[in-house]
Computed example of a mutant assay.
Amino acid sequence: MTDWRERMESGSETLRQQAVRVPLPDVEAERSVHENMMRIAAAGERKSELLDDPDVPLTEVYEDELDEMRQSFEHRLQQVAGEDYYEVATAYLDGERDDWIGALAAYYLECYYRLQERYTVDEQIFFLLVLRYPECFTVNLSFLTGDISAAGVRYESSKHVEADLNERNAEQLYADCQYSQYDASEYLRENVSCIRDAFPDPETTPFAQRRRGGFVHITGRQGATFTEILEPVSPDPNRFDDTASEPGLVSEGPEARRAKRKFLTDTTVVI
């Protein structure tokens, strides 16, 4: 990982403010995306259930979510570049290859490593924007520092509070944290439907009703306070004027810039 970080720090801005664009040439490709989005929605429901369980510490909920995301990225890396995805990604950053496989391997591997660090780097914000267009979809992943300023849900973990409390105050803190986690559970349960709405089943949904959709998911932690936003996003109808023949990196679109302005303040983009 040290070798990779040195490459990123001394390398290019190749991955900064970029998104992955993947063509959707047929119903089979749409079905694959739909199934993947349903897995993401199911993970959101699982997180909601864990948050609602008073016997499950928030640290365990957080670890479960990060593990799910890491597995997803590792699976994607192997799909794109095979078992040697590290060598493929580093060759791309070293300028030894310039194909879309190398670009996507570098993009996903950097995101994978950033996720490895999230449990210890608490000021980092994770920003995910997935958008469906008639002929393709895009995935924009960003890691930023700054503040989440807009509405969503905030909840607290008594395990992360650094304070010397007496028994009465400790019990009150625990109760307050549990109440905030119940609120977060309800928020996720109500909002996870926006993922399903954005990527409905292509076998049962007319094309006119599934040609555009999207959602944004933002998570962050400052000390003991966790913040989460999950909302639908409408794709810009004028985003693309061409048809993608293969996956690749594109600049993040106006939808991502608007979402960052709406939900975040004083941010610095890490990737």
Rank of each mutant, 00 (worst) to 15 (best):
E63V: 08
E65Q: 10
M69D: 14
R70D: 10
S72W: 12
F73S: 10
H75W: 09
Q78D: 12
G82C: 12
E83R: 09
Y85R: 03
Y86E: 14
T90V: 13
L93D: 07
L93V: 03
L93Y: 07
D94P: 15
R97Y: 14
D99T: 05
I101P: 04
G102D: 07
G102C: 04
L104D: 01
A105K: 03
A106V: 00
E110D: 06
E110I: 01
C111V: 02
C111N: 04
C111R: 03
C111M: 01
Y113K: 00
R114Y: 01
R114T: 00
L115C: 03
R118A: 04
Y119V: 06
V121Y: 14
D122K: 01
D122A: 04
E123R: 02
I125R: 01
F126K: 07
F126P: 03
L128W: 02
L129I: 05
L129E: 08
L129R: 08
L131R: 03
L131W: 08
R132F: 06
Y133H: 09
Y133I: 02
P134Y: 08
E135A: 09
E135F: 10
E135Y: 12
V139N: 02
N140D: 12
N140R: 06
N140Q: 08
S142V: 01
L144N: 00
G146L: 00
D147F: 03
S149F: 01
G152Y: 05
V153L: 05
E156L: 04
S157I: 00
H160W: 11
V161F: 15
V161H: 13
D164E: 13
N166F: 12
N169H: 15
A170C: 09
E171P: 12
Q172K: 12
L173I: 09
A175K: 14
D176M: 08
Q178C: 09
S180M: 03
D183G: 11
D183K: 11
S185Y: 10
S185A: 15
